[in-house]
Amino acid sequence: MYSITSREDLASGIYLFKVEAEDIAKKAKPGQFIILRMDDKGERIPLTIADWDEKTVTIVFMEVGKTTQKLATLSAGDSIADFVGPLGQPTEIESFGRVIVVGGGVGIAPIFPLARELKRKRNTVISIIGSRNKDLLFWEDKMRSVSDEIIVTTDDGSYGRKALVTQPLKEILEREKIQRVFAVGPVIMMKFCAATTKPFDVKTMVSLNPIMVDGTGMCGCCRVEVGGETKFACVDGPDFDAYLVDFDLLMMRQRAYLDEEKKALEMWEKSCPKS
């Protein structure tokens, strides 16, 4: 059992847990993820490592379905049955020069350790973080602390600039030469980020989030197409060159269990009415 040492409600439906997992904390690098299984009947779900210290690993998750909603009922002192990692390849981080990191929605969490490491490697870090509205935004301060410049956007203009993240992205690329772009967030956002940077031909890395089971290369559930080749996101990724990724296929594979997910969620909500 892995115990939750603290919980923070970061934004509407977005939660942070620090989980005691010393082995994983010692090894964690930006871009890697863990897989957890809440209890004996639970599903294995992947979550990116958003931070770590000597003994704990921080995860940030958004309530979307049964598992994440169940997870959100836990608090400090509770524990999670299984917690394994760090999985996947770490993000390739060098001294590139000037870089842009884009975090959309819950994708702001994984972008933080990445930006911090980029900064540590003496890059000039320009961060763009965006969410649908003000209630969903978090970690602006943390991101500011590791960025040379930060732009905050909301879709509805309730905070920061009313824009999609791709708009400031385009403006910066028009303004100056950038050596690398990293984008993490919903697939559709990553797809449009790729389309935005493409005309400027700046190497753009995205972190893919297909459905996974084991996370160790054993099942092939997480397969994605990159440059016409099949890759297993859990072991070959999750980071890939955005210009080579088949985003439409990824979105279709993510929807493979929509009916089942709906059913599971309805049953859960019925058995445990939320206040």
């Binding site: 009947k41 639970g42 599903e43 294995r44 049964k66 598992t67 089971v213 084991d214 054993m218 099942c219 092939g220 559930c221 397969r223 994605v224 197409e225 099949t230 296929l249 279709m252 594979r253 929807r255 493979a256 089942e260 059913k263 599971a264 049953m267």
Partner: peptide, 28 residues
């Protein structure tokens, strides 16, 4: 890579290890 195409490992892992044959009692 269309949805609905499984490796035997995935199909069997979901069924046996994750007990998908007992869905929705089990979550997978």
């Amino acid at each position: 890579n269309l949805s609905g195409i499984y490796s035997a490992n995935e199909f069997l892992t979901r069924t046996n290890l994750m007990k998908a044959y007992l869905f929705p009692e089990y979550d997978t």
